[in-house]
Design a protein around this nucleic acid. Structure first.
Length: 109
DNA sequence: TCACTGACTTGGC
DNA sequence: CGCCAAGCCAGTG
């Protein structure tokens, strides 16, 4: 395994996120079986930098805020990528986040 | 081997 | 309504 099955699992879920949709750390963590393990998802995203196939910009916190935008090349790069996907951002926060939310535990069910 | 940290979440004050 | 503290999992020092 590259890093861990946990990380690989997170990558696959994020890669499965359709364009124009977003998911949350908690949703992925819950999908993996660890609701509180949302932190690990963020950690996986950090490792995701070596995975260009993993659109980490489509992963936000439960509030729909681009928490990890600072981890990107530019603080606005995450927002630009999301807007390019067709998502609207306002004040580092997702607009109509509920409508754009993509839950793997439901969509992939 | 133990301890700390971290892109979160939830609850309490 | 806003801030603080605790919990969880895995990786790195």
């Amino acid at each position: 395994m590259a890093q861990s099955d946990f990380f690989e699992n997170v990558y696959e879920v994020v890669k499965l996120v359709p364009v124009g949709r977003v998911t949350t750390y908690g949703a992925i963590a819950a999908y993996l079986g660890s609701k509180r393990g949302a932190r690990m998802v963020g950690w996986a995203m950090n490792n995701a930098h070596g995975r260009p196939d993993v659109p980490a910009h489509r992963v936000v916190n439960r509030n729909g805020v681009l928490t990890g935008k600072n981890f990107f090349g530019s603080s606005t790069e995450m927002q630009e990528l999301l807007e390019a996907d067709g998502v609207k951002i306002e004040g580092d926060q997702l607009v109509a986040f509920k409508e754009c939310f993509w839950d793997p535990g439901i969509e992939l069910l």
